[in-house]
Design a protein around this nucleic acid. Sequence first.
DNA 1: GAGACCGGTTCTTTCAACCC
DNA 2: GGGTTGAAAGAACCGGTCTC
Length: 551
Amino acid sequence: MRGVNAILKIKDSELDEVADMVVRYSKQIENEVRKLSNQWGIPRDLKEDLIQQGYIGLLEAHKRFDSSKNTHGFWSYACHTVKGRMKDFMIYSISHIRPTRELNSIISKIHKESMMHHSPEYIANYFNCTLEMADLGLEYIRIRNVKSLNQSLSNVDSSEDLELVDLIGAEENRDYLFRVEVVGELSVIEQGVIKMLLDRFSVRDIIRHFKISNHTLNDILKKIANCCGYDCSHILTRNEGWLMNLNHFDLADGEEKERAQLRWVPLEKVLPNPENPRIDAAVKSEHLQDRIESFGWDEPITCYEWGNNFRIISGHRRWHAANELKLEKIPIFLVAAPKSRGEELERISSVQGGQVEWSPFDQIKYTYDRWIASGRNSFESLGSELGISKGLARSRIRVYEYYPPGEIQDKLNNRMYSVRMLEYIYTWIKRLAKYHPNLVEALGGEHYIRRLMLKKYEARCFNSMLVHDTFVTKATVQVIRDFLINTNKKLNDYQVNVTDTFSVEINSAAIVTEIRDIKVKTKSEARKLLGEVDEVLACIERKKAELESLI
DNA sequence: GAGACCGGTTCTTTCAACCC
DNA sequence: GGGTTGAAAGAACCGGTCTC
């Protein structure tokens, strides 16, 4: 509590009351942490930090709470501050990225084995995961690398049973002390400098990143030193090349290690891989350019030799960023060439982190390419190869085969369409072609109907319940045609519900509503409509006679 | 009145069992 | 092996409530 007291300036006379409150609401705070933890997949060490933040929020709310104004009790008032504190902390600690289940698993393993300081390649090899997954895990841990005030300092020689909070004001262990929130007195740039120092960036990297002079940086470091009360001159002597992790590759496979080489090669000799399913290498390019400019290359591009050039297996976005920056030379990590197209596709997928950042369309294209490369194997075996269900494998292939890329690519990638919905539409159209081939022909083929259906989906004329639709098999050609060509008409307005084999219900309310809503303005419209009404009446008379004959 | 939060509802996605 | 269907989980949405 000492650190918390210092932050909130709690008077000694209030300590008992505050202690009671902390005990009373500890369960609620733990519940909130549990909820957030389930939602975000927070590692155990960060949960303690969240609980700390909850207590701080509780104390802040306590200071503001006015029982005469708030009749719903203290907790209903305080819970917002508590949750707000926790969420702010999470946003600061883990940014906006929500890790996937697989990534979370890797992060937990890295924590458990204390492998934060190993190279991505070593971790990928150790945990048998992809290189990009290991890299993402490390990145995630780096941005979450905030120490708990109550974190044990057992790894610090002189600190038996001490917690970080106990080191506030102590003389040793400068790096730990920088992390404590005394930085609140510093400017944004000064806090940024501290963060980079703690993350082991070199002085040169800091100067380049903030675009400041050596002299300015020295002034900032002096201010930080004065503020914290420490001499940080030792940091200034850090090895300038520390950030270049290029000598950190620690492959377990001896043979592979011999074959793998690191080289700096002219940019024009590095060629993109046509098998790369990622269509747009410019995704997050500005961020990568900024990172390369600020911090240098923290990971080379993985390539294999291709004649006199090098073909990329992993790193198309970094290659694109290097082109944008007009760099002359870039670092590559040279590996053995794949023996077949199938192996090449598999390796591209493997090193690109299980397609974590692939767009939906990239995933579809990749699944289709793998299927073709495998000689059109069963969806089941393809699914098991890719780690997806056979149903999803089938959906992706079917969608890629059926829809022209131009029709779906953008809208798939911005999540307006889903693979499943596109497959439902495909199935619906195929049913239409089976039960009403003449209508499909009359409308100029499936191509036109497909575009109409996509338009109708965008206009929310139907949803995933399309998969259970019986309208397409039961309705008349005229009604289906009407549904298709009226882009705003909803499927619900037309749907016929077949409740069982022997009973059919007509959505009479919808039909009556639709008829009532019809409005005509001219005589010719009225004449045309009369003709259609006659047709409907004739249809009804026929159906009536048919039903009466059954009674 | 604006904004944050909560709980209920609806929609979407995925998976697996079952059927042809 | 491929297609269909239902269950379950997650995401998105919406209206009500509360605080400032």
